[in-house]
Deep mutational scan, measured.
Amino acid sequence: VFVDDHLLEKVLELNAKGEKRLIKTWSRRSTIVPEMVGHTIAVYNGKQHVPVYITENMVGHKLGEFAP
């Protein structure tokens, strides 16, 4: 499973602090992992960042699938 390192670091850091804030990313190719559930990730679609709230059903899919 591929997840960009910088994105995973941000998610794990927020989980350690117990925070839930918006994470901006250009990494549409990253796979959604269970650690991301409950976070809102702003995924770049080529024009703007689209906020995507991550749920359990999204695990295993790519971030780009949810930012048309």
Rank of each mutant, 00 (worst) to 15 (best):
Phe2Asn: 08
Phe2Met: 08
Phe2Val: 08
Phe2Gly: 09
Val3Ala: 02
Val3Ser: 02
Val3Gln: 04
Asp4Pro: 03
Asp4Asn: 04
Asp5Cys: 15
Asp5Leu: 15
Asp5Val: 15
Asp5Lys: 15
His6Ala: 14
His6Pro: 04
Leu7Ile: 05
Leu7Trp: 01
Leu8Ile: 09
Glu9Val: 10
Lys10Arg: 08
Val11Trp: 01
Leu12Trp: 07
Glu13Trp: 06
Glu13Ser: 06
Glu13Ala: 12
Leu14Gly: 06
Leu14Trp: 02
Asn15Cys: 03
Asn15Phe: 02
Ala16His: 08
Ala16Pro: 01
Ala16Leu: 11
Ala16Lys: 11
Lys17Ile: 11
Gly18Asp: 07
Gly18Arg: 08
Lys20Ala: 05
Lys20Asp: 02
Lys20Met: 07
Lys20Glu: 03
Lys20Leu: 09
Lys20Phe: 07
Arg21Asn: 11
Arg21Ala: 14
Arg21Gly: 12
Arg21Trp: 04
Arg21Pro: 06
Arg21Gln: 13
Arg21Leu: 10
Ile23Pro: 01
Ile23Phe: 03
Ile23His: 01
Thr25Met: 01
Thr25Ala: 03
Trp26Leu: 09
Ser27Met: 05
Ser27Lys: 04
Arg28Gln: 06
Ser30Phe: 02
Ser30Glu: 02
Ile32Val: 12
Ile32Phe: 01
Ile32Cys: 11
Val33Asn: 04
Val33Lys: 04
Val33Ile: 15
Val33Leu: 13
Pro34Cys: 15
Pro34Thr: 12
Glu35Ala: 13
Glu35Thr: 09
Glu35His: 09
Met36Phe: 09
Val37Arg: 10
Val37Ser: 06
Gly38Lys: 05
Gly38Val: 00
Gly38Leu: 07
Thr40Ala: 10
Thr40Tyr: 07
Ile41Cys: 03
Ile41Ser: 00
Ala42His: 06
Ala42Gln: 04
Val43Asn: 00
Val43Phe: 02
Val43Ile: 13
Tyr44Arg: 05
Tyr44Ala: 05
Asn45Trp: 09
Gly46Gln: 08
Gln48Trp: 11
His49Cys: 07
His49Asn: 05
His49Ile: 03
Pro51Phe: 05
Val52Gln: 04
Val52Lys: 03
Tyr53Met: 10
Tyr53Arg: 11
Ile54Ala: 02
Ile54Trp: 00
Ile54Phe: 01
Thr55Phe: 10
Thr55Trp: 10
Glu56Tyr: 12
Glu56Asn: 13
Asn57Thr: 11
Asn57Glu: 14
Val59Ile: 15
Val59Asn: 04
Val59Met: 11
Val59Thr: 12
Gly60Met: 15
Gly60Arg: 05
Gly60Ala: 11
His61Asp: 08
His61Phe: 14
Lys62His: 08
Lys62Ile: 10
Leu63Val: 04
Leu63Ala: 02
Gly64Gln: 10
Glu65Thr: 12
Glu65Ser: 10
Phe66Val: 05
Phe66Pro: 01
Ala67Pro: 04
Pro68Thr: 11
